[in-house]
Amino acid sequence: MVFVTAEIGINHNGSVDIAKKLIEMAKNAKCDAVKFQKRTVEKVYSKEVLDAPRESPWGTTTREQKMGLEFGKDEYDQIDDYCKKIGIDWFVSCWDIDSQLFIRKYNCKYNKVASPMLTNIELLKIIAEEKKHTFIGTGMSTIDEIRDAVKIFQDASCPFELMHSNSTYPTKLEETNIKCIETLRNEFKCDVGYSGHESVSYLVCVCAAVLGATSIERHITLDRSMYGSDQAASLEFAGLDRMVRNVKEIETILGDGVKRVWDSEVPIKKKLRGI
């Protein structure tokens, strides 16, 4: 069965109340897990970037915007409690070592390597040493870069699966190129999922499931018109609900490939063929 993750990321806009509503939305749509993002802002971004002007609900600089979107211990404690209360797994893509070490205290079942972090060798080693099932994003990466990352997880005997992705938000349909799911599976002999960043459509995710994607990750939002760079590439509840239902029907629809006469066909066969 395809594992479906609802990517909340930073679409909570710094609000635990919004985060809880998104978690509940994912649970109601029968997603398997929700995912957040964690950054130590001063380590991930340079001073020049953080000092740059940027209008946001939190101020006029990029630093204020990034800090306004970042959750700390109090918020993650509440997220952990709420996910346990309603019965859904949660995990995080960490963008630096400090964030990864911070998240360890919650003992999440899964890890995620965000596509931008694929070449951060030291971070990958810290993640791999946990030996938790890890989803590895491959957006904006070459086969050689992916190979280097895969070796780290293989050497650490850490279970993983790759996730085909395009890191443009939103992704153009002609650039989704989901045949890469087969390419990655053949090249690395591992499970391969799909992390989608298209706009309102979820068709690509369904097609990915048909191609054998073992996991699907999709950004979610309460309202695509909300503030935030990821909102436009996210699904609201109606779209998420349909996507999960369709994706999880794929295995049933594909069947086992064995040609047979079904019991339901027998009376039809007798009626129309007389045998």
Rank of each mutant, 00 (worst) to 15 (best):
D96P: 08
D96T: 08
I97L: 04
D98Q: 12
D98N: 14
D98F: 04
S99N: 04
L101D: 15
F102W: 07
F102C: 09
I103H: 00
R104G: 11
K105M: 14
K105N: 13
Y106L: 09
N107R: 08
N107H: 09
K109E: 10
Y110T: 10
Y110H: 10
N111Y: 07
N111E: 12
K112E: 05
V113A: 00
V113Y: 06
V113I: 10
A114I: 01
A114L: 01
S115C: 01
S115T: 00
P116H: 07
P116I: 10
M117F: 02
M117R: 11
L118C: 01
L118W: 05
L118P: 06
T119I: 07
N120L: 08
I121M: 13
I121A: 12
I121T: 15
E122T: 11
E122A: 12
E122S: 13
L123W: 06
L123T: 05
L124W: 00
L124P: 05
L124G: 04
L124V: 07
K125D: 08
K125F: 05
K125M: 03
I126D: 08
I127C: 00
A128G: 05
E129Q: 15
E130D: 12
E130G: 08
K131G: 10
K131Q: 14
K131I: 08
K132H: 11
H133T: 14
H133L: 15
T134F: 03
T134A: 01
F135I: 01
T138N: 11
T138Y: 09
T138A: 08
G139S: 03
G139K: 03
